[in-house]
Design a binder for these strands. Structure first.
Lengths: 301, 301
DNA sequence: CTTTACCCTTCGGTTTGACCGAAGGCAGAA
DNA sequence: TTCTGCCTTCGGTCAAACCGAAGGGTAAAG
């Protein structure tokens, strides 16, 4: 499928306008061009996207799906443009901090809150990136420091572990697996799963390990939050896999049972990463010391 | 900025390969074409993206940003392709349910959990869409039903309110605003804010209202979760705006103070929406009845 | 210090394909 | 019946994407 951003934009124009003619006007195209382009889109998608009516067009279900993703991609482009423009401005008094998803949801809020509260003159620009991207950025000197999982290799960088981030399995109370206390991924791979949304990094990671075993996970539903996932499991809808600390956190609210996952890839740690501790700027050095600090600040949620 | 998906893919190839020459090979392009194309990319971005070294190239900070967003967009494309392929398969025994972000994070997990637990033979395909998209899909008959905010108009559809979803302001304890109990957006617009991540629907919505008042919100930090936002506010880093039910939920964990937002656009309700209740299929009718049911299932978290 | 090995940019020529206007066909409205 | 609005197809035009070759630079090797 060879789709272009211009294709997507045109498609949205057509959907919004309700006709190819009007959509072509919106997109500053001749009717013929829009029609031809649309045909290419449908050919490469392999499905009919618009239903032709005498007085215009309406989307098919596939078309609606494409429109949704088109909107997402175009929005991402807008975000990108904004971020790139920010480089001209170059906000002062702002520390740019890169962290992976686990750190951003679980570890950082408490730590950053106390640090920011004590330093009204500093702001933080917190960006969510994959561990791989963060390592690349720090290696190349583009970012001073970041927070990553040690599951990725970081040649030439210093890593300082700050917290464990192991994966755990959660099962409903009274589930036959519950008393075991631990399990291997291969032993649960055929269970009905509660997944995370398609596209989440953790979910894709699990999917790859399943594929390596020659299996496909089957999902009863895929949730968009860990909280929702725990709730589903607690009610007996299926089993799930998530970071151990998060599972533990929600055990106060939901009565699921937690098993450790014995596979080696399930043992991960969050680490500060930087090139040379001595070369860090003062506020960053201070911030990292705070993040690694032994004096936990309301960290046992 | 006129950027193409092919441009983005080429750029990623170059970044991954570490040189334009090798990147061109990966992208099946001649060196000259890759070079020219890259020049166009940099021109339209207005920033230098790659630093030329004798033995290859490395990304600048702007380049790293572009690479990140490029990866996100290409991943979105992959998701789209997968979803479109699913239309051929057409899973049976699966109910497709569209809901907006608020419903997915807050309202649905508990309701769906009890429903799914009682019906092992059914699965649910839960998709997160904007209210506008959901209304369009239901209007066109592409989806049987959805869950939306009543802030958008829904001509010709039936709406059935199920729960309030008003916006609230939260401030640190002992904040001067705390005793007031309510406030208008215009009165707090110059405060230091804790935001949600750029690109989140709620955050952009607020940004638009600020722009309408001729102001820009200033952020001390932008968090990726409501939990993190509450934690920041509780520690006195700034103030925040979020759905009232979520604010209330976190008051057990964090000592922030909650004010209602008096602006009319802050009063929202979540509604079931469908074209004709009688025309719904049996399982969907059953599911909707359950979602609207007066017998709350562990709903008072 | 020279040579070699890479790597990037620029140039001129070729070709693809994106675009357009015009013509044709179709279905509902008048 | 005619008229209107909409979509598709066709042939011609032209910008731009692509390529090979040539030029110029720096680091490593000899």
């Amino acid at each position: 499928m060879r789709l272009d951003l211009a294709d997507l934009q045109l498609f949205l124009c057509i959907v919004d306008a309700g006709s190819i003619t009007q959509g072509a006007v919106l997109a500053n195209l001749a009717l013929a061009s829009a029609s031809e382009r649309l045909r290419n889109i449908e050919d490469s998608a392999g499905v009919q996207l618009l239903q032709r009516l005498p007085r215009g067009v309406v989307t098919t279900e596939a078309g609606e799906t494409l429109a949704h993703h088109a909107r997402m991609m175009l929005r991402q482009r807008t975000l990108m443009q904004n971020e790139l423009q920010d480089f001209a401005a170059g906000a002062r008094g702002t520390i740019r901090l890169y962290a992976n998803t686990a750190a951003i949801t679980e570890f950082l809020p408490a730590k950053l809150a106390s640090w920011l509260a004590a330093r009204p003159q500093w702001n933080i620009d917190l960006k969510e990136r994959t561990s791989t991207e963060i390592i690349r950025a720090v290696s190349a000197g583009l970012a001073e420091a970041g927070i990553v999982s040690d599951a990725v290799t970081a040649d030439g960088l210093q890593l300082q572990p700050v917290i464990d981030d192991h994966l755990a399995v959660i099962v409903p109370p009274y589930h036959p697996l519950a008393p075991l206390g631990k399990t291997a991924f291969s032993d649960i791979i055929s269970e009905p799963f509660i997944g995370l949304a398609a596209g989440s990094a953790l979910q894709e990671h699990l999917g790859q390990h399943a594929a390596r075993l020659g299996k496909n996970l089957s999902f009863r539903i895929r949730m968009h939050t860990f909280s929702g996932l725990c709730e589903m499991v607690s009610q007996g809808v299926g089993i799930g896999i998530l970071p151990e600390r998060i599972a533990r956190q929600y055990r106060r609210r939901y009565p699921h049972r937690q098993l450790s996952l014995t596979d080696s890839w399930a043992k991960r740690r969050l680490c500060l990463c930087f090139r040379d501790r001595e070369a860090l700027s003062v506020p960053v050095k201070e911030l990292l010391a705070h993040l690694a600090g032994n004096s936990p600040v309301s960290d046992n949620r």
